[in-house]
Simulated assay, not measured.
Amino acid sequence: METTAYTGSTRWHELVVNKIKFSEPFEWLAKGWRDMIDAARYSLTYGAVIVLISGLLTFVLFSTDSMFLLPFLVAGFFLVAPFLGIGLYQMSAHLEKGEPLKTCNALEAWKSNHTQISMITAGFFIMMQLWIALNYVLFSLLYEGLSPPLDNFFSNVFLSEKGRNFTIASIMVGFFFAWWAYMISVITVPILIDRKIDGFTAIRLSVKSVLQNMPAMMLWAFIIVVIVGLGLMTYFVGLLIALPWVGHASWHAYRSLVPSD
């Protein structure tokens, strides 16, 4: 894919992002749905691979008696989801230009700006590891063993006094990670695919897009959580559609928020 050189200033007050309407996220969803239908063969295959990987990870947790980590791994999914959609952004970019999708894949998207995308992706996975590690620490502070027994896991974690403390602490930590991850990543990977700029500039454009359009971007965050959350709640099967839909829509979010010039 041909990329566009970024020639603007990297000073915060000179980074330009568009002001959008509160209802604009629904337009992104409509455009994302059209892209998913137009690229159904490729998009749904992409979603199926994510479903398969999610199922395998769950099996590994079950096999290693680590199922107590599943809720936190699921929550961590939102931290790495921006990178997981890299191939979907590429598909939308091809559709936008009327280019064929035969050679469209995540590897092609990564190659467009591989150094910066690799560094940003590493950061996402480090955040996810920190999130899981913090929950390990919280468990160790509340329980004698690594985790409560699985046969009464729900009652111990969510209904007991110690469990309520754990749940509150986990939610607070999770909200902190999720909000910061959202701000720095909501359009960062699409920017890096489309433009030859550094990851730090892409992150700052993403953060500024959120701060200057807070109501609309909070709505977009809520929509993402609902759609992807429903996909996760269906034992990952719903991700077959949820992830491609949100991924394509995220490309249009980037196009709407960052001026083409």
Rank of each mutant, 00 (worst) to 15 (best):
51 V>G: 07
82 P>V: 01
100 P>E: 10
90 Q>A: 01
105 N>G: 10
97 K>C: 01
86 I>R: 00
53 I>C: 10
113 N>R: 09
77 F>D: 04
61 L>S: 06
62 F>H: 03
112 S>L: 08
132 I>G: 01
112 S>T: 15
67 M>W: 03
95 L>G: 03
78 F>D: 02
127 M>F: 12
55 G>C: 11
103 T>V: 14
135 N>Y: 03
133 A>N: 15
57 L>Y: 04
81 A>I: 04
52 L>M: 15
74 V>T: 13
123 G>E: 13
129 Q>N: 12
95 L>A: 04
100 P>A: 06
108 E>Q: 11
117 I>A: 10
116 Q>I: 01
121 T>S: 07
78 F>Y: 14
54 S>I: 07
63 S>T: 07
135 N>C: 07
135 N>T: 01
80 V>L: 09
63 S>F: 01
128 M>V: 11
104 C>W: 06
109 A>M: 15
79 L>M: 03
103 T>A: 12
66 S>R: 02
102 K>D: 15
64 T>F: 02
84 L>V: 14
65 D>G: 00
63 S>W: 05
91 M>Q: 09
113 N>D: 15
99 E>W: 04
130 L>S: 14
52 L>W: 07
136 Y>R: 01
60 V>D: 01
133 A>M: 15
77 F>E: 00
102 K>F: 15
55 G>K: 09
135 N>M: 09
63 S>A: 11
113 N>T: 11
51 V>E: 04
118 S>L: 13
105 N>D: 10
121 T>Q: 06
72 F>E: 04
136 Y>I: 08
134 L>G: 12
66 S>G: 12
50 I>H: 10
127 M>H: 11
50 I>Q: 03
120 I>T: 13
104 C>N: 13
114 H>D: 15
82 P>D: 00
116 Q>W: 02
60 V>I: 13
82 P>M: 04
59 F>Y: 11
96 E>D: 14
118 S>V: 08
80 V>A: 05
92 S>P: 09
61 L>Y: 02
50 I>P: 07
51 V>W: 05
89 Y>K: 04
50 I>N: 05
74 V>Y: 05
118 S>F: 12
51 V>N: 04
68 F>P: 00
107 L>H: 13
62 F>A: 02
69 L>K: 03
108 E>V: 04
57 L>N: 06
93 A>I: 15
69 L>T: 06
113 N>M: 13
109 A>C: 08
83 F>T: 08
67 M>R: 07
57 L>M: 12
118 S>H: 14
79 L>K: 00
91 M>T: 06
60 V>H: 02
63 S>D: 05
98 G>S: 03
133 A>T: 13
128 M>P: 09
117 I>T: 14
82 P>Q: 05
112 S>F: 13
95 L>Q: 02
105 N>E: 08
114 H>L: 12
57 L>R: 00
126 I>E: 11
99 E>V: 04
74 V>M: 09
83 F>S: 01
84 L>M: 10
120 I>C: 02
110 W>F: 13
